[in-house]
Amino acid sequence: MNQEKVGRQIVLPFSVSVRISFNSMRIRLGRSFITIMGILLTIAFLMSILAQASIQNALISRGSPAIAAKITVDESTQARMRWLISLSLLVCAVGITNSMLMSVTERYREIGTMKCLGALDSFVIRLFLLESLFQGIAGSLLGIIIGTLGVTLISLINYGSEVLRVFPLLELFRYILFSLVVGIVLTTLGAIYPAYRAARMVPAEAMRREE
């Protein structure tokens, strides 16, 4: 009986989803700027730790002995480096998840409204996923640029032009890709969970939540 009276065809074309997510970011510029800044800072932190380790290693193995001698690398520095990298990853995960959690929870009412208009759970998740993807890419790229440039500059000041001669381009590139992936994955994961929870609520509950 349901087949006659109730259809099930509900659509949201992909191009429209992209436009909605993009506009939603553009219009809430202040809010998405803060979210992007959050991602940017954590990724810049991660990238600077990785880049610093990479440049120092290059100086030690291929740089002039005089400069290599300036860098003391013993067991404890190595351990401290590893500790810093894992710490920065942790900061990344917590910071980004928190940013995304905030930006989704403050929009519960909007999610409830969308569902009243006939949005499927998957539309809501898709819109937030796209939005977080844009933010993740933007934040990570900026963070990588700032982190890498910052560390390179500091190394140049500390160790002089020797840095450029031994510049570990390939290794840095690998770290850049790694940071990009970390940034994007954490951002989308951080957004999916709260969006999924919000999308699955009955609309009445989602709309009540904000108050």
Binding site: N2, R8, I10, K115
Partner: peptide
């Protein structure tokens, strides 16, 4: 879920 969304929509 699909039918419910359709109902709310149409």
């Amino acid at each position: 879920a699909y039918e419910l969304a359709w109902l709310r929509c149409r």
